[in-house]
Design a protein around this nucleic acid. Sequence first.
DNA 1: ATATATTTATTCTATAATCAGAATAAATAG
DNA 2: CTATTTATTCTGATTATAGAATAAATATAT
Lengths: 109, 109
Amino acid sequence: MKILSRSEELVLLAVWNLQKDAYGVSIRKYIIEKTGVNWSIGAIYVPLDRLTKWKFLTTVTGDPTPERGGRSKRYYKLTPEGLKTLNHLRSVQESMWSTLPDLGWDQSS
Amino acid sequence: MKILSRSEELVLLAVWNLQKDAYGVSIRKYIIEKTGVNWSIGAIYVPLDRLTKWKFLTTVTGDPTPERGGRSKRYYKLTPEGLKTLNHLRSVQESMWSTLPDLGWDQSS
DNA sequence: ATATATTTATTCTATAATCAGAATAAATAG
DNA sequence: CTATTTATTCTGATTATAGAATAAATATAT
């Protein structure tokens, strides 16, 4: 079974967590906030396309909204396959991470 | 702070878990076993070099061993920086994974 | 003994995949 | 009708991957 790349993992988790509001811009914003790292536009849309091609995501085009710049958005939703693949990744990660000593706090600077 | 790529994450975790026996071939074997996926030689050695360049790993060359093909190996060890970066990744992952429903078992086929 | 084969290990390189950000599109506001 | 805002698509440059080539050791055959 496929081991997701980092960007694929982050995109699927963002789609899951954003629920009904998951589209390109909101997904990117969510990932930047959660990771504290700037991800380029391409780093989000390219994996979105790939995950859709693989049937880990489905997509529907929303209606335009009556606000400045409110062009229609492409919304994404996880498929059962996508959820299954995420859970598989989790089980692999858990088996590899279990022996790492927890430093107890995040020492990022 | 850097978010590790998948191959970088797997390599660092393998080095941690293999302890004194962490060198190219054993690292690759460990990752293939744990993930159930074939990783090419390049997919291991390239991130090893990069992680060493970034000072997340240190390396020493061992002595040849008296067995067929027993040429000397390059052993790797995690630095405090490497461990810190791994723990940072863990904290980011935990905050994103916490809301995912656990399917309860790994359904990989 | 020494040349050839075999095994383990790493380095190298062409191809494939990913990323960064410019370009384009589609909406409303002025 | 021009400017501004939000959103997505596109493309050159960078990075990562697959696996061939090379290196360094011991084993084996003549």
